[in-house]
């Protein structure tokens, strides 16, 4: 039970139950869809970017507690940040989850609640789906983000 509490911390459960910034943004300047084909989690990220800065961010989607809480906390963390700062934050977050010692990592703040996910390698993708989707929106690639690479359908 205590190990499970390291994974399912109160902050995570709180954001799972009451996700922040969870709405459709009608004035979004960028959007992207994310999908984890292995478990069916989906997320859509909406951005309003002005002068290289994320003025507003929101999301819609369905997923497990880790995925939903990660998306919710991500929106709080990157709101007001520049695109460059956001990219750097994702790198630091990803390094923490995969156990890579970050050399010049940023302060992850609240995102540290996901540290326990490192002990559950199959769940790392649940915590990073939102970030991959955010990155796709920032890159404005137009193609949906996926935790797996994909080819065309039959």
């Amino acid at each position: 039970m205590s190990e499970l509490r390291d994974l399912y911390q109160q902050v995570i459960l709180d954001h799972h139950r009451k996700p922040r910034n969870c709405y459709v943004m009608s004035c979004a300047t960028r959007t992207a869809d994310g999908h984890n084909p292995l478990c069916g989690d989906t997320v859509k990220v909406y951005l309003r970017i002005s002068d290289g800065r994320i003025e507003e961010i929101s999301f819609q989607g369905s997923g497990c507690a880790i995925c939903t809480a990660s998306t919710s906390l991500m929106t709080e963390s990157v709101k007001g940040k520049t695109v460059a700062e956001t990219t750097q934050l994702f790198r630091t977050f990803h390094d923490m989850l995969t156990g890579v010692a970050a050399e010049q990592g940023l302060d992850l703040g609240k995102l540290m609640v996901f540290e326990g996910v490192r002990e559950y390698p199959v769940r790392v993708k649940c915590a990073t789906l939102a970030w991959h989707t955010l990155k796709a929106a920032l890159d404005n690639s137009g193609s949906p983000a996926s935790t797996e690479s994909s080819s065309s359908t039959a």
Binding site: Y8, G63, C64, A65, Y120, R123
Partner: peptide, 13 residues
């Protein structure tokens, strides 16, 4: 209110 993935992880524990 509990996603199957979370149940899977908890059961595995």
């Amino acid at each position: 209110g509990i996603h199957p993935h979370d149940i899977g992880t908890i059961l595995d524990a």
